[in-house]
């Protein structure tokens, strides 16, 4: 009953205006996912880019400080973030520490992603005992006291980058495995797989060259989101004392050092590195979430 006046640029005679299109759910979803992705990229970029450039930027020495300059609050004397108890510039320590943390995070995610996707697709495709074993492992891992086991393993093998990477990878492989498994379960029933079987392709070939590329996009989004978790886990381990050793800074280590001090008013040692971690993780999560909005087919539609 309402006769909307058609805009001049429209297909004449329709009610659908560009304005209406812009307000539609699909367009809004697209717009919001873009906002999220941009916001996420900015947040993460603000952290990642300086960290990557830490060797190149004109920063002060993160390892040797001058005792006379100990515990200066932020914005004094050319120290943007202040100094720690040994007189070392906090900004520099945070950026250099970020390199260690990011390195561990990326490596761990690569390893856990690889393991998870492989295990999940094998379990999803073959079913049977492989599926049982993988599912049982997934379930068992969920009920383990994870942090304790990680601490124990680090205590056992020593806190080196390799060990911590592996430990975080083990903590994280369930996520990609589960997702991959359920995706593969769905893909398996599709006609092209049956066709491939009929053509005599080996099952592993089917998995590797047909199925995985189809689900890779969705699985990779999950893996990407794991990066944030890996960084969080690494800082938690450092905080509890199981991180990479002195005098190289790690984010969790800096916070742990500052633990005793915040009560006497030196709040920056604890809040600023945490803020950096939070910013990075929020950025990665936002970006990944926006990405997932783009990539996912809604549940109702599938």
């Amino acid at each position: 009953m309402t006769t909307a006046t058609a805009q001049s640029t429209d297909i004449p005679g329709t009610v659908v205006t560009p304005a209406r299109l812009r307000r539609s759910a699909a367009a809004r979803r697209h717009r919001y996912s873009r906002i999220k992705m941009w916001l996420g990229a900015v947040c993460a970029g603000v952290v990642i880019i300086p960290v990557l450039l830490a060797q190149v930027l004109p920063l002060q020495d993160p390892v040797n400080g001058s005792l006379a300059q100990a515990l200066l609050p932020p914005m004094t004397d050319g120290h943007l973030f202040g100094t720690d108890a040994n007189g070392r510039d906090l900004l520099s320590r945070v950026l250099h520490g970020g390199q260690t943390s990011l390195l561990i995070g990326c490596l761990a995610v690569l390893v856990s992603g690889a393991i998870g996707i492989v295990a999940g697709s094998l379990a999803g495709y073959y079913g049977g005992w492989i599926d049982t074993v993988v599912s049982r492992l997934l379930e068992a891992q969920m009920s383990l006291p994870l942090l304790l086991m990680l601490l124990l393993v680090v205590a056992l093998f020593g806190p080196s980058i390799l060990v911590i990477t592996l430990v975080i990878a083990i903590a994280q492989w369930p996520e990609p495995a589960r997702i991959t498994r359920s995706l593969v379960l769905v893909e398996r029933e599709k006609p092209y797989v049956a066709a491939a079987r009929v053509l005599g392709l080996h099952r592993l070939t089917i998995i590797g060259r047909l199925i995985i590329p189809n689900i890779l996009q969705q699985a990779l989004v999950v893996v990407f989101l794991l990066l944030a978790q890996a960084v969080l886990l690494e800082s938690a381990l450092s905080f509890l004392g199981a991180g990479v050793q002195r005098p190289y800074p790690t984010w969790g280590g800096i916070i742990s050092d500052g633990r005793q001090l915040f009560i006497t008013g030196q709040w920056w040692l604890v809040t600023i590195p945490g803020l950096v971690i939070a910013l990075l993780v929020i950025g990665v999560n936002l970006f990944g979430d926006g990405l997932r909005d783009r990539v996912r087919r809604t549940k109702a539609a599938s």
């Binding site: 944030a228 969080l232 916070i255 633990r259 604890v270 945490g274 939070a278 993780v281 929020i282 999560n285």
Partner: peptide, 13 residues
């Protein structure tokens, strides 16, 4: 998203 991204020890502090 922000809520699930912050390290718990940091929030605590």
């Amino acid at each position: 998203i922000a809520g699930q991204s912050m390290p718990d020890f940091w929030i605590g502090f």
